[in-house]
């Protein structure tokens, strides 16, 4: 057992981490909103933890709290990301359509440029020598914090889906105007969904900074956004198991494809294209379909039924 953990502990933690980041994107999607911000909040949370654990300004706090500083970094990252989520979310979520996706791209790019230039974030080099959470000796021990975090988030998701809030999210996803007419204020609920995702991504970031030992501006990039979006859509965006399965699988695929060497990233792109063409419901959706009888077939939706843009 300990041999297994020694060899695969790091990979297992990375798989759980991917699943958690997938779940953080699942919340806005529950309310029908495409967000690409998870890597941004992940990076922000990681910076909060890295600064609190290494910056001399927090030395006094670290001495007083001892190991208690680690849960405090999670809390601080969660709170700060909630605040950032409101600031980014409110202007973008008043609008319908693709605006949130574009605003979140802007958010991660601004964050990246700022992190590259501030001295507190270590500039281009980043922050080094972040102490291990609770003095962990081995990487696999991080399973002890990432594992419970995953269970907690899954339980939270499950309960939320059954609640009034979850039903409001789904109502907005199906038809925003109708939801509004039924007394569900779309903007508030959309911002709520977005902020929940932000908090989860931020906490995962603050847990990951000690795990990776170093933190820099490469942590939250547009590439990561694509990867996380793929976790959710290929896993299945209509079930909370989708992001977890997709995250674990797509994180494992590059490892499995290692024998392809230089062709690995090309094949990875092809996997995205083929999966979105042939698994439109995601893996979990496709498995669910196998078990249920197929629904009555609807006529295919016309390519585009209405003008979506302006006059060219």
């Amino acid at each position: 057992m300990s041999d297994f953990l020694q060899s695969y502990g790091f990979l297992l933690v990375t798989l759980i981490q991917a699943g958690l980041l997938g779940l953080s994107l699942y919340f806005p999607l529950m309310a029908g909103q495409l967000s690409l911000a998870s890597p941004g909040f992940y990076a922000l949370g990681g910076y909060v933890a890295a600064i609190m654990l290494t910056n001399p300004a927090f030395a006094g706090l670290r001495d007083t709290l001892g190991n208690g500083i680690f849960p405090l970094t999670w809390l601080a990252a969660g709170l700060l990301c909630a605040l950032a989520g409101v600031i980014v979310g409110v202007p973008a979520l008043r609008l319908r359509g693709i605006y949130l996706a574009l605003a979140t791209i802007a958010f991660i790019e601004i964050l990246r440029v700022v992190a590259l230039n501030l001295s507190i974030t270590g500039g281009a080099i980043g922050i080094f020598g972040i102490p291990q959470t609770f003095g962990f000796q081995d990487r696999w021990q991080y399973l002890l914090i990432f594992g419970p975090m995953l269970l907690l988030v899954l339980a939270f998701t499950y309960m939320l889906q059954k609640s009034r809030v979850g039903r409001a999210f789904r109502a907005i996803r199906e038809d925003e105007l109708a939801a509004d007419a039924m007394g569900v204020p779309p903007t508030q609920y959309k911002v709520l969904a977005f902020v929940i995702g932000a908090v989860i991504a931020g906490i995962v970031g603050s847990m990951s900074a000690p795990f990776l030992n170093t933190w820099n501006a490469k942590q939250g990039t547009f590439d990561a956004s694509i990867a996380i979006l793929a976790f959710v859509l290929i896993g299945g965006s209509r079930s909370m198991w989708g992001p977890v399965v997709g995250g674990a699988l797509l994180t494992a695929v590059p490892e499995l494809l290692r024998f392809l060497q230089d062709w690995r990233l090309v094949i990875n792109g092809l996997v995205l294209v083929v999966a979105s063409l042939y698994l439109p419901q995601g893996i979990v959706g496709a498995l669910g379909k196998l078990r249920r009888s197929p629904p009555p077939s609807r006529p295919p939706v016309a390519p585009t039924t209405d003008a979506k843009g302006g006059t060219p």
């Binding site: 996706a101 793929a230 792109g269 092809l270 995205l272 294209v273 979105s276 063409l277 439109p280």
Partner: peptide
């Protein structure tokens, strides 16, 4: 999904 597939094409 069109976003993801076009991102996939870009990656390729």
């Amino acid at each position: 999904l069109a976003l993801v597939s076009s991102l996939g094409v870009a990656l390729v």
